[in-house]
């Protein structure tokens, strides 16, 4: 995928590996899900009650594009699945003043085809076709993607780049966490186990802003070996507020703030290679990458430089 299947398949494979090494029962890795109970939730309150009752033994089933693969491999064995797909309160893409609010159950395909997203969130519009394959995009949801926080997923990187807010709800009420504070580490987020990603509030992108989205994958739709969601403000020939968010490089989306700051104020009229060189120098210091099965950490660092160069080159070409 990246994304939906990704964390199971990637995360799944990692867990399989963990079990290979540390547990003598890897050989039991099966293909049919373990037994569990299932509830088709009809209200958020019902979800909260069930979560209160079952705690960590209950899983929320949204798009299921990761959870199902994980269950089939029995990498997880919940007692209860709470299916939230019937909760209309979590659906829809709406304008709210200077922001676009995307319900947690909004499917990837809806974002991909949304006129609102195309108009106001061009970065997300550009990112969507990169997510896995059509059948996965028909089913996977933004809430699921953000809650799972696959390190190679596109949407977490986009919401960080766009400085979105993530609305979490639980029986205790609701709270909002800035996307930039949400992703803590490998599958580790600010979300508590009893909370749902109810919505994502993304500031409308100013017309003056420029965007870059690109990822490098072994094959179309695979987990990204490296990806970059970037935005910049260009005033005349001068860049400001360069935002670079990398994904697929380590445990979570990485906002390379120092690199962005270093490049802000640079004039794009001069030698672009020189600017790229300066940016690369800061980036090398700032980024820490981790190997995956197909790319070493060194390769990932290199690809981050390549993506940065491509972003700056595109920005320079598109100024005025």
């Amino acid at each position: 995928m990246p994304s939906m299947v990704s964390w199971r398949l990637r995360g799944g494979a990692q867990r399989v590996r963990y079990r290979y090494v540390h547990q003598p029962n890897w050989g039991k890795i099966p293909v049919k899900a373990p037994p569990f109970a299932y509830v088709r939730a009809t209200s958020l309150d019902q979800v909260f009650d069930l979560k209160a009752q079952h705690g960590d033994d209950a899983r929320i089933l949204a798009g299921g594009q990761s959870l199902m693969a994980m269950l089939n491999l029995r990498l997880d064995a919940p007692e209860l699945l709470i299916d939230i797909n019937g909760l209309d309160a979590l659906k829809g893409i709406d304008e709210d003043g200077d922001a676009v609010v995307i319900g947690g159950l909004t499917r990837h395909v809806e974002l991909e085809r949304s006129a609102l997203v195309a108009t106001h969130l061009p970065l997300i519009a550009e990112a969507m076709p990169n997510i896995a394959h059509p059948a996965i995009r028909n089913r996977g949801t933004i809430g699921g993607s953000i809650a799972l926080a696959d390190p190679a997923a596109e949407l977490p990187a986009c919401v960080v780049a766009l400085d979105a807010e993530i609305k979490l709800v639980s029986g205790a009420g609701e709270r909002t966490v800035k996307a930039r504070e949400f992703f803590h580490g490998l599958y580790d987020t600010a979300r508590n186990d009893d909370e749902l990603v109810a919505a994502v509030r993304v500031p409308k992108s100013p017309v003056s802003r420029r965007y870059f989205f690109s990822e490098i994958t072994p094959r179309r739709g695979d987990f990204a070996s490296a990806g970059l969601a970037a935005t910049v403000e260009i005033d005349g020939d001068t860049m400001s507020d360069l935002t670079l968010v990398f994904f697929g490089l380590a445990g979570r989306p990485i906002l390379a703030a120092r690199t962005g700051d270093a490049a802000s104020g640079a004039a794009l009229t001069g030698d672009i290679d020189q600017i790229i060189g300066q940016v690369h120098a800061v980036l090398d210091e700032e980024l820490e990458t981790q190997a995956d099965l197909h790319s070493s950490a060194k390769m990932k660092s290199h690809l981050a430089r390549v993506l940065t160069k491509r972003a700056l080159t595109q920005f320079a070409a598109g100024r005025s």
């Binding site: 090494v21 094959r219 099965l293």
Partner: peptide, 27 residues
Amino acid sequence: FEECLYDEDGNFISATMADYLVPMAAE
């Protein structure tokens, strides 16, 4: 693309279709 990868303990670490890369249509 294709490679059956083993780690130093003999664990087959590319044993899913997401990790063992078969040719797909796009490439």
